[in-house]
Amino acid sequence: MSLFSIWGQYFPSYLQGLGVTIELTVLSLALALVIGFVLALMRLSKVRGLVIVATVYTDVLRAIPVLVMLFIAYYSLGAIGIKLSGVEAAVLTLGAFYGALYGEVFRGGISGVDPGQREAAAALGLPPSSVMRKVVLPQAFLAILPPATNRFADIIKDTSLVVTISVADLMLQSYQAISATYRPMDMLGLAAIMYFVVYLLVSRVLARWELNVQRRRS
C-alpha cells in the first residue's frame, strides 16, 4: 500500500485523536492559568504564609517529573479510593504542573511593571483590584505573552504523555497504528506532521498577536 493511501486510511482515527489532544490541552491550559494566577497573587502578597505555601508548591512541582505526577494522579490516587479517569488525571496533572510554571511567568510579568504605574493609579483613587485590572495586568501582558506562548506549546506536546495511561489521543492512535501496519516511521510521521502543524499554528498565531499588541502601544 502506498504511503498516502495508508495515511488516508488512518487519518480519521488520527483526527479523532487530535480532538482528544486539543481537548486535553484546552482544559489543562485553563486550569493552569487559574492556578498560575492564584500562585502569582500569593507570592506577590505580603502575607508570609501565602508566600511560603506558593513557593513550596512551585518548587516541588517543578522538581517532580510530570510523568511521575501523572501516575500518582492516575494510579496512586486510584489505589486510595480517588478514582480519576485518564482525562481527568491528565488535566489535573498538567494543570497543576503548568500552573506552577505560569505562576512564575505571571509573577515575573507583574513585578516587572514600573511601581510608578501602580502609584499613579492608586493616587487617582482606584481601589487595589482596579489598579490590578486596569493598569498592572494590561502592562504585564506584553511581558507575559512570549513565555506564556511557549508554555502553551509545551502543554500541547506534554498531553502526549497520556499514551502511558491509554487515553486515546493522537499519540496513542499512532502508537496503535504501528502494531497494526508494521510501518512505524510512516505512522509516527503522520502524527509528527499533525503535531508540528498545530505547534506552528499556535506559536505563529500568538507571535503575530504579540507583535500587534506591541505595535499598537508604541
Binding site: 506549546a153 500541547i156 506536546k157 506534554d158 498531553t159 502526549s160 504523555l161 499514551v163 499519540m171 499512532s174 502508537y175 504501528i178 510501518r183 512505524p184 516511521m185 510512516d186 509516527l188 510521521g189 502524527a191 509528527a192 503535531y195 508540528f196 505547534y199 506552528l200 506559536s203
Partner: peptide, 22 residues
C-alpha cells in the same frame, strides 16, 4: 524547531520504533 515542536515521547518512538522501518 523540530525538537521543540514535537512531543518528546513521539521523538523517542521515532528513534526506537520508527528507524526499524529502515
Amino acid at each position: 524547531e523540530l525538537v521543540r515542536g514535537l512531543p518528546p515521547i513521539l521523538q523517542l518512538f521515532i528513534i526506537f520504533f520508527g528507524l526499524t522501518q529502515f
